[in-house]
């Protein structure tokens, strides 16, 4: 019998091996991190034009194949000339939204120049988000999202992407998820290289984005008709339209499709 008070009430070493704090205080379940997204938002698409950038995302939050939430805003203005578009897991998106609000609040503290010289710029917001995303993936606990940061900095359009792995890149046209396959080729027909940006005005860019949103609504089963579009223009500042719908769709071909539905061929 061991008379040391330290070992009172503990399982004996002879029977159970050396006492381990890790085992004695082990939680009932192993620690778990995000392994898959739950409620998700589909593509965010964006492009540069000669005086700014345009970014768009629809209002749907899908639970697998169920169209679960139909009024979710996925574009977030930060400061005066930045918009962050978020696709992927919606709860992680809302966490990022809280982080961005904190970032803005703290930038304002003890800073009498917070609305001009020291206001948050798109590149600052992007660097912050990219750092968060990479840190989380390095902890094997990712935020399951792909983000696009769009804005105007030093009178020039800014557009950059980061995802759950912390992978970042920039291009005059950018899209996340399904949009990277479906929308980007359409956007690149207008702006393929950096030099095309100069030749593209706001109207052309807007039309291109609207067209791409329409094609996505036709072909992406997890997309919704309602969407938001933000234009960050060097002169007009942020123009944020949250009430858009895909319009002028043509469905007359549908009646000729035979053999998929319940109709008799």
């Amino acid at each position: 019998m061991n008379h040391d008070p330290y070992s009172w009430g503990r399982p004996s070493d002879e029977t159970y091996g050396q006492y381990s704090d890790a085992i004695a205080h082990a939680p009932s379940f192993p620690k778990m991190n995000t392994q898959q997204p739950i409620v998700t938002g589909t593509s965010v698409i964006s492009m540069k034009y000669n005086n700014g950038v345009i970014i768009a995302a629809d209002h749907l939050g899908s639970y697998g194949s169920l169209l679960r939430f139909t009024d979710i805003e996925r574009l977030f203005p930060v400061g005066k000339n930045t918009v962050v578009g978020i696709s992927g897991d919606i709860s992680d998106m809302q966490h990022i939204e809280a982080l961005l609000e904190e970032l803005e609040t703290e930038n304002n503290y003890d800073n009498s120049h917070a609305d001009d010289e020291e206001s948050l710029q798109p590149s600052y917001v992007f660097e912050y988000l990219a750092t968060v995303m990479y840190q989380r993936r390095s902890k094997m606990n990712p935020l399951w999202n792909a983000l696009i940061v769009a804005g105007v900095e030093d009178s020039k359009p800014f557009l950059k992407y980061v995802n759950l792995l912390g992978v970042t890149y920039s291009s005059p046209t950018l899209a996340t998820g399904f949009g990277a396959h479906l929308a980007v080729p359409l956007l690149r027909r207008v702006v393929d290289r950096e030099s095309d940006v100069e030749k593209t005005d706001m109207q052309t860019a807007t039309d291109t984005i609207l067209q791409a949103m329409k094609v996505l609504y036709y072909r992406d089963a997890r997309s919704s008709r309602k969407f938001s579009m933000a234009i960050i223009d060097n002169d007009q500042g942020l123009v944020f339209n949250k009430e858009l719908e895909v319009e002028n769709m043509k469905w007359n071909f549908a009646k000729d499709i035979k053999g998929y539905g319940t109709q008799k061929v």
């Binding site: 609040t105 304002n108 503290y109 003890d110 009498s112 120049h113």
Partner: peptide, 16 residues
């Protein structure tokens, strides 16, 4: 030039 309050601002903000 320094927005009337100078570098030595005394009143602070909590939240917004």
């Amino acid at each position: 030039q320094n927005k009337g309050s100078g570098a030595n601002t005394k009143i602070q903000t909590v939240g917004r």
